[in-house]
Design a protein around this nucleic acid. Structure first.
Ligand SMILES: [Zn+2]
Ligand SMILES: [Zn+2]
Ligand SMILES: [Zn+2]
Ligand SMILES: [Zn+2]
Lengths: 148, 148
DNA sequence: ATACCAAATGAAAATCATTTCTATTTATAA
DNA sequence: TTATAAATAGAAATGATTTTCATTTGGTAT
């Protein structure tokens, strides 16, 4: 029980390696989503030997384990976000600064009835992501606009 | 006003070309989402000269015009679905047979208040997709299961 | 502590969906 | 019809992600 990241990895039955700890630490540091490449660049500050595939592999495993979340992005590349919130929830993503905020609301229950009665199907999973401009970026925008 | 696809293209200010008509026709034919590659294979039956980039370009333009919809898939490749429903709505996607069904419900209004009050952000767009098993696939499953 | 083994990693190469480039063709409006 | 911008084919490039395989490492049992 070295730290919270060790615990997380232990729960996922993944070996506790310095690289994995660092990946979690980097993602946990700020409320921004990050690409494998970005994370790799940050990793290189601490490890002289660190391969990009290691970053990809671990991000995939951590996302699979539900410890980090994938962000859906128009450029269709991979982005991840660390989130401590253990309850099922969704995310508000700022398209300007990449900040992510929890949205403690899930629309699944609103459509379970619709899907079962009208489509006569069974829900397996769902994707809900809200994209927008966060308060920080709105304030920047409005302060810029105010000078006109 | 040759047909409904010509009208669609006219509205989008895209030139009415045989390739575009055929792409719309292929996507409109069945309630399945399709990849650019699949559509290209089907196009080759009618056109001896048809390039894959043409299919990609047109699918992109049509999606941009809101005539076809992108499906979010775990393999992260591009898939498209033709949908006549002009009202804002979402989709139920069968992960087994690729069938798509309209879900005339949108969770946006449920979170507008949350986002504006708690996150103090502004919603620009949202993604909501329900993945599951459709009734056709459920029936196939249960008839297979019944033989045990 | 030491040895062992499966898991994790680095480095290089491969993959392959998607995009770009350019010369040619085509749709459309005057 | 003719002019012109848009659309297309074909070939090549791109680049994020994945695979391969030899080496290293973490966890567990001596
Ligand atoms: Zn969260
Ligand atoms: Zn949910
Ligand atoms: Zn629809
Ligand atoms: Zn909606």
């Amino acid at each position: 029980m070295k730290n919270k990241y060790s615990d997380i990895l232990k729960k996922l039955k993944l070996k506790i390696t310095p690289k994995r700890i660092e990946i979690l630490s980097i993602l946990d540091r700020e409320n921004y989503f990050k690409s494998p490449e970005e994370i790799w660049q940050l990793m290189k500050k601490r490890f002289k030997k660190i391969g990009l595939p290691t970053v990809y592999r671990n991000l995939e495993d951590l996302a699979e384990g539900g410890v980090i979340f994938r962000i859906i992005h128009p450029d269709r590349q991979l982005y991840y976000y660390f989130c401590n919130n253990k309850d099922h929830h969704h995310h508000f993503v700022c398209i300007s600064c990449k900040r992510v905020s929890d949205v403690d609301y899930c629309p699944e229950k609103e459509v379970i009835n619709y899907v079962s009665k009208r489509i006569k199907g069974k829900i397996i999973s769902h994707i809900f992501q809200i994209n927008g401009i966060c308060n920080v970026c709105m304030n920047i925008e409005s302060s810029l606009g105010g000078t006109k």
